[in-house]
Structures are given as structure tokens and as C-alpha cells.
């Protein structure tokens, strides 16, 4: 027997309320300040370095995103590191916060389904991140215009828009994860600590562990080592393991989209490159195709984690 009514009844109300809460919260302000200042530092370095060696580059604007000037990493790398922090910051107390404030049963006693509450909260947090990323994106384009004086071409704008969309899904993965943990753990502090632990593990430890694990799974053939080469099997394993981290997926997708000369994200044999003009940019569509599997991975991760928290939340007892 089907339940009556729409699961989305009241979702827009929850969405608007949560969005207003997020945008006016001190927490969000701090996260935004953190991201804006770090990103500005990276951009400043990038602009400086671009001004000093103005080579012929058809994608000057995109270089703003990707150039890294030691000791600062590139703008995209910084975002890859900080977007999860922002998503966790917005999601870690989504469900248990309502429990602990004892508002959950009162809200669920209104004529809405739980679906509306969870979905509304998720979309509101994602929209908040979307808004700040869009603002950041405009900031980059604006600074590029002011300091480089080169108007962005349509392809550059298109590529950077793809960056924006992928970044939002990347945030979605972390947001889903944080909300899942906020459903699992009744204490917001536990949920925050566990999500931050996972974030640190996946962004810092995993890139070191994955190659080591690959060595164990597929020990490199000594003959390659004698020739001073990497065993392709080991390399492929290392890359596949790395791709379990959303961080890696984001960086690969960004590499494909923002550096138009990228031809492949995996190891290639030399004969596969025969006839290719090394250094020539790929058309926009081809770059997007290159980034597509990674993007799908991020979207799928978002959906799967959200479904887990949805199922858990539906079965959870509302009483405190």
C-alpha cells in the first residue's frame, strides 16, 4: 500500500529556512573567510607569476586556476582541500542537531514526511556551497580581468563553468558523508570528528598509502625496475586505489578540464601517442569526455551516501 501525499511537501519550506540559517550563521562566515583568504593568496601568486612570464597562452584565464607557485599550491588544489571542510562544516550536525535541540519530533509532527526534511537540508547546504563557489568563481574571473587585462574567451568560461559544476558535486560527496554520519551518531561532536578524520585520511594519508598498497597487490616486476621503469600493472593499481578518494577524482577531473593539453588521465603507452601533437590543446568536448568518468564517480558517490543516510533516517526513532 502506498502512503498518501507527496514526499516533497514542505521541502521548499525546509530548504528556505536552512539556507537562511546557513547563510547567516557564524560558522559559514568563518568557512568562507578561510576559503576566500587562502584562495586569494593562491590567486595573487598565480597572477604574479603570470605577469612575469607572459608566454603565448590561449588559456590565460585557466592558468589562474591551475598554476602553482611554491610554497602555495594552486587555486584548484586549495579548493580540493578546503571544499570538504566546508561541506563537513555544513552537514555534520544536520540530523543530530535537530535531535539534540529536541526540535525533530515537533517538526515531524507537522504534515510533512521525513524525506522533505532530509532532502531540504541537503539541498540547502549544497546551495549554500554552490553560492559561495559561484562567488569565488566570479572573483577569479574578475581578478583575472583586472590584473591580466585579457577578456576570457567563451571556451575558457565554459571550462571554468565545468569546474564549478564538478566542484559542487565534489562538495556533494562530502556533504552526503557528513549528513550520513550526523544520522549515525547522536553526538554532533562525534560526527564532526569522524568526518574530519575521514577527510584527513582520504586527502593526506591515502595518497601515500595507495602506492604502497599497489606494491603489495601487484608487486612490480624486477625487470621493469632494472630498466628504471615503473611496472604498468603496479601503476594502474596505484591509480585505481587512489581514485577511491573523491579528492583524487576531483583533481583528475580538474586537470582534464582546466589544462586543455591533458590527453589522458591514466598511464599511456608511447605508441598510443603516435601522431599526437604534444602540447596542443584538446577541444572542449574531448576534455569534458576525459573528465566525465570522474564526474560520474563524484555524482554516484553523492547519491549513494545520501541514500544510506535516507534509509537510516527513515528507520530512526524520533524520540530523544
Amino acid at each position: 500500500m502506498r502512503r498518501e501525499g507527496s514526499p516533497f511537501q514542505g521541502m521548499s519550506t525546509v530548504f528556505v529556512k536552512e539556507l537562511a540559517d546557513h547563510i547567516s550563521s557564524v560558522r559559514m562566515l568563518m568557512l568562507q573567510l578561510l576559503i576566500v583568504f587562502t584562495a586569494l593568496a593562491a590567486l595573487y601568486e598565480a597572477i604574479n607569476s603570470l605577469r612575469q612570464n607572459t608566454a603565448e597562452d590561449p588559456f590565460l584565464l585557466l592558468r589562474l586556476f591551475t598554476i602553482d607557485q611554491a610554497p602555495l599550491p594552486s587555486f584548484v588544489a586549495i579548493l580540493g582541500f578546503l571544499i570538504p571542510l566546508m561541506a563537513i562544516g555544513l552537514g555534520f550536525d544536520a540530523v543530530n542537531g535537530e535531535h539534540n535541540r529536541r526540535t525533530l519530533s515537533r517538526i515531524l509532527a507537522q504534515p510533512i514526511y521525513r524525506d522533505a526534511l532530509l532532502m531540504g537540508k541537503f539541498l540547502a547546504a549544497l546551495a549554500t556551497i554552490g553560492i559561495s563557489l559561484a562567488a569565488l568563481w566570479l572573483l577569479v574571473i574578475g581578478l583575472g580581468l583586472i590584473f591580466l587585462g585579457v577578456p576570457p574567451g567563451s571556451e575558457e568560461v565554459a571550462r571554468s563553468l565545468v569546474f564549478l559544476v564538478v566542484a559542487i558535486f565534489y562538495a556533494g560527496v562530502w556533504l552526503s558523508l557528513a549528513m550520513l554520519l550526523s544520522t549515525v551518531f547522536r553526538s554532533a561532536a562525534t560526527a564532526a570528528l569522524v568526518s574530519l578524520g575521514i577527510w584527513l585520511f582520504l586527502t593526506i594519508l591515502w595518497p601515500m598509502l595507495a602506492p604502497a598498497l599497489a606494491q603489495v597487490v601487484a608487486p612490480p616486476d624486477p625487470r621493469y625496475a632494472l630498466l628504471g621503469l615503473n611496472d604498468p600493472a603496479t601503476t594502474v593499481w596505484a591509480q585505481e586505489l587512489l581514485r577511491l578518494s573523491p579528492n583524487d577524482l576531483f583533481e583528475e577531473a580538474m586537470l582534464a578540464v582546466l589544462s586543455p593539453t591533458t590527453r589522458s588521465l591514466g598511464p599511456v603507452f608511447l605508441d598510443q601517442l603516435r601522431g599526437a601533437v604534444i602540447g596542443a590543446p584538446l577541444p572542449f568536448g574531448e576534455s569534458v569526455m576525459l573528465a566525465w568518468p570522474q564526474t560520474v564517480g563524484l555524482i554516484a558517490g553523492t547519491i549513494i551516501l545520501f541514500v544510506f543516510s535516507y534509509v537510516l533516517f527513515q528507520r530512526q526513532e524520533v524520540r530523544a
Binding site: 500500500m1 502512503r3 498518501e4 501525499g5 511537501q9 540559517d21 535541540r101 529536541r102 526540535t103 519530533s105 515537533r106 509532527a109 507537522q110 504534515p111 510533512i112 514526511y113 530523544a320
Partner: peptide, 23 residues
């Protein structure tokens, strides 16, 4: 169990130690 929205539209509930959004 099957028509919760209709029930919840007509029934008011004040939970034990009710909470509100403090801000």
C-alpha cells in the same frame, strides 16, 4: 501509519521537553 499527513494536519503534538530554534 498510512495517512500520516492527514493525521498530522489535524493533531497538534507537544513533545516531552520541546525544543525550538534558539537563534
Amino acid at each position: 501509519a498510512r495517512e500520516p499527513l492527514k493525521v498530522k494536519r489535524r493533531v497538534g503534538y507537544l513533545p516531552d521537553a520541546v525544543g525550538f530554534y534558539d537563534q
